[in-house]
């Protein structure tokens, strides 16, 4: 465990809390992509199957349970909550996210640490998480005005994996640990946020509304 890793996990948790606060306080999920949320549920389920097979960890296990519970709750709210589901931008959330699942599954089948059920699913979840934000970024581009909570949510989500990159650099030098799969997927994931980060920081510095081209 190192400070980068702890800060990264807390940032990830904060992003989810921001989204839950937005949905519960405004009773609205406008600007949030249900497809991205669906993909996150898939990411967490396929990644945290080892909850049952591996020894529980005082740190990881609570986080895994919280990530699973919150991501499922968010999808539940957006699909079934009578007030919230009316505010879902169904017609602008158009990204074909199913096209993301198959390539990740095929890639996981061929590139994984060990060819076992758990490891292939774990690799699938790593690859899927890297691209899961795409429907959300596409939805933001078509949103006329992005509310602050949504902007902060996406920023924190991007920042957490960027912090993981720092954690991996630290671990490479300090603990001589090499993890190609999450490294490359994490780089791709963070790179996808590059233009969002640019416009988010620009809008924050000019104290103006966040607007994606």
């Amino acid at each position: 465990m190192n400070a980068f890793r702890l800060l990264a996990d807390l940032t990830h948790l904060l992003s989810i809390i921001i989204l839950l606060v937005k949905i519960r306080t405004t009773k609205s999920c406008a600007g949030i992509s249900l497809k991205t949320q669906d993909l996150y549920v898939l990411v967490f389920i396929s990644r945290y199957l080892d909850l049952f097979t591996r020894p529980l960890s005082l740190y990881n296990t609570p986080f895994k349970l919280v990530f699973l519970a919150t991501s499922i709750t968010i999808v539940y709210y957006m699909r079934y909550h009578k007030v919230v589901k009316q505010t879902y931008n169904k017609d602008s959330d158009t990204f074909k996210h199913y096209f993301l699942i198959l390539p990740c599954a095929v890639l996981a089948f061929f590139i994984n640490p060990k060819f076992t059920f758990i490891e292939v699913l774990w690799s699938f979840s790593i690859y899927l998480e890297a691209v899961a934000i795409l429907p959300q970024l596409v939805l933001l581009q078509s949103s006329s005005n992005i509310d602050n909570l949504t902007g902060n949510y996406v920023f924190m989500l991007g920042a957490y994996r960027a912090l993981y990159l720092l954690n991996w650099i630290y671990r490479f030098f300090a603990e001589d640990v090499v993890r190609w799969i999450p490294w490359i997927a994490g780089l791709v994931q963070t790179a996808l946020y590059a233009d969002f980060f640019y416009y988010y920081i620009k809008s924050w510095r000019n104290n103006e509304r966040l607007k994606l081209p």
């Binding site: 060990k114 490479f172 090499v178």
Partner: peptide
């Protein structure tokens, strides 16, 4: 450097 399969990260 070892490519360990145990996942101690989230």
């Amino acid at each position: 450097a070892d490519q360990e399969a145990t996942h101690d990260e989230l």
